[in-house]
């Protein structure tokens, strides 16, 4: 299997995100702390696996969001995202 086939997108992280957020987050507009470009969460590159979710900026590769599940709880590191705009209504 080619490595690129293992890379999915933010849509595949929607369930993990809904464990934390009250709304669907795939339409949330997230601004990258690295390059300042904004992308819907659904288009971020997803390198996650069974341990959790790693979402990278599709423009510059910055790690924008990490979620790791542990027996004690979930870690979420959003230091690579400067702003998240969560739409009032799904688009």
């Amino acid at each position: 299997m080619r490595v690129e086939e293992m890379r999915l997108d933010g849509n595949a992280a929607a369930g993990a995100l809904r464990e934390i957020f009250a709304h669907d987050m795939t339409t949330a507009l997230v601004t990258c702390a690295g390059c300042a470009r904004a992308s819907p969460m659904g288009v971020l590159m997803n390198y996650g696996g069974p341990m959790g979710v790693i979402l990278r900026c599709p423009h510059c590769d910055t790690v924008m969001l990490r979620i790791v599940s542990t027996p004690g709880g979930r870690y979420m590191d959003a230091s690579g995202s400067s702003v998240m705009l969560i739409p009032e209504r799904p688009t």
Binding site: A14, T26, V43
Partner: peptide, 8 residues
């Protein structure tokens, strides 16, 4: 669990 997703 679901439905999930709102972008696609």
């Amino acid at each position: 669990r679901g439905p999930i997703g709102g972008y696609f």
